[in-house]
């Protein structure tokens, strides 16, 4: 029963990644695509967590934190690029 529930949730979260992929392909504006990429990253955290139950190992639990941090940094840099046109401002005269 427990294993069946785990597999069902894995299928649900994988299909939610698929639906987000549809929005990623056809989204009309750039922020749409950024949102769906961010949500796919968050879903990937969930997939890693469930897979570590399926494989019965605690070796992948560090990867959860790593993917969370990387998704956040990526989304923040995309947002800053959209808003200001550059990610790291190197202009020393304009203070």
């Amino acid at each position: 029963m427990f294993e069946l529930i785990i597999w069902i949730s894995l299928a649900l979260i994988a299909s939610s990644s698929f639906l987000l992929m549809i929005r990623l392909i056809k989204g009309p504006s750039v922020p749409d695509r950024a949102i769906s990429l961010d949500a796919i990253g968050i879903n990937l955290v969930g997939i890693t967590a469930i897979m570590s139950i399926v494989l019965d190992t605690s070796a992948f639990l560090d990867i959860i934190l790593l993917i969370g941090i990387l998704a956040f940094i990526g989304t923040v840099s995309i947002a800053k690029f959209l808003e200001k046109g550059e990610i790291i401002e190197n202009d020393r005269n304009n203070q």
Partner: peptide
């Protein structure tokens, strides 16, 4: 876990 996966599907 089932609730979490369900919420994720709802959000997608």
């Amino acid at each position: 876990i089932l609730q979490g996966a369900f919420f994720s599907l709802i959000s997608a």
